[in-house]
Design a protein around this nucleic acid. Sequence first.
DNA 1: ACTGCGCTGTTACCTCCGGTAACATGGCGG
DNA 2: CCGCCATGTTACCGGAGGTAACAGCGCAGT
Lengths: 227, 227
Amino acid sequence: MTTEPRREQLLNAADRVVQREGPSASMNAIAAEAGITKPILYRHFGDRSGLIGALTARHTAGLLAAVRTALNEPLERRDRVEHVLDVYLAAIESRPQVYRLLTHPEPGDPTGAGNALAPALRQIAEEITRAIQQQIDLGQDGPLLSETWGRSITGMVLAAGDWWLETRPCPRARMVQALADLLWGRLSAAADLPPMLATTPEPRPEPRPEPHPGPRTGTRTEARPEA
Amino acid sequence: MTTEPRREQLLNAADRVVQREGPSASMNAIAAEAGITKPILYRHFGDRSGLIGALTARHTAGLLAAVRTALNEPLERRDRVEHVLDVYLAAIESRPQVYRLLTHPEPGDPTGAGNALAPALRQIAEEITRAIQQQIDLGQDGPLLSETWGRSITGMVLAAGDWWLETRPCPRARMVQALADLLWGRLSAAADLPPMLATTPEPRPEPRPEPHPGPRTGTRTEARPEA
DNA sequence: ACTGCGCTGTTACCTCCGGTAACATGGCGG
DNA sequence: CCGCCATGTTACCGGAGGTAACAGCGCAGT
């Protein structure tokens, strides 16, 4: 943990070239950016995954801390969730290349197991799991539900965030609302649409579906899973 | 289009070796499995992504059809959602290697844009989007919400499914329940837990930990690399 | 002083990958 | 017999990650 200055310089160079060329930058390119040659990189970081790991660890700390504090903000639950979503989206918006590195790592492992979530995302999932577990009463299924939901929410926000970055369909605040609405059960609360007739040109009067319904959740409390 | 038999044989060989070695199987390995050498593969499929594409297209069809019919099953909405979830989880459970190929493709593009969802998952997301759009009344925000939710739900089920396959924490039916509960707003409906004290058998009231009672913060931008 | 040591750096090489060029077959209709 | 086309081969290229083996530098220590 001693602040090795050379290492930091090399990581800075790697950071620059990753910012510029994306996460698939070659070791040669990184070495060239640092003004040196490959073997030095390998002396310091062992192999490529070591370098990438050290590189991601830096940024992961910031993102993780931001998410964690957002998860513990003393707000109404809905506002807290929105705040977490906003923090994450703001982060990936501010430096897309960096967060693409964090969220979409190289495959890496050979005949091993293919995981879905990158280490940084795994940590975020665990953070969400912990927050759910110590903030929300889910009965005896708490452990399973919180773990499942931690991963699920992470994957959901990951996919949504990537899509949002790719094709900016709306401002960030609206995206936050859309995601929070999904988590708030709006999918189950909304009315049915008459069968058949996909794109009905008939503009039926709608009493304002409440993008941000403050107090009560119109979700139904059914299906307590009791295996 | 025309049922070219050689092509099918080669794809069968590729399928075998992918089943056995995972999605990162080399072209040499596939050629060897087929009893031939590399250039023939390249004659038939152009490049590696062509082969992988043809290989995935086969399986994508089945998975996509299964999901689509599940989405249009004439059931109560909750049961329909559970059915879709169950169909997906059953699919990835039955042949994990194949569906890892579908869901976690190789990086592929260099300096281009890094997408989150593989083609097969993109199609599933679109299917979900379409189903939401023509089954549920979401008012004027319908298009944006359905598109967002399609991607979100896909990413959520992807992450949850991968985690479930990795560490089988529960039977499939329970997993379906956990995911459906999340989509049904149980996260918002559940009761609060007294602050502090995560996994303590005897919950004694205590003052808040308060790591950072931070005021509202927007985006953070710090830690820029320097030479 | 000379030695040993640790860190910096180099050149040159290895293996494996995706991908290609060039050449060698075999069947088959004119 | 001829072309023709699909099949197949060997041999190679460029670039990736990764590894020797060797060369300089600063700086203790007796």
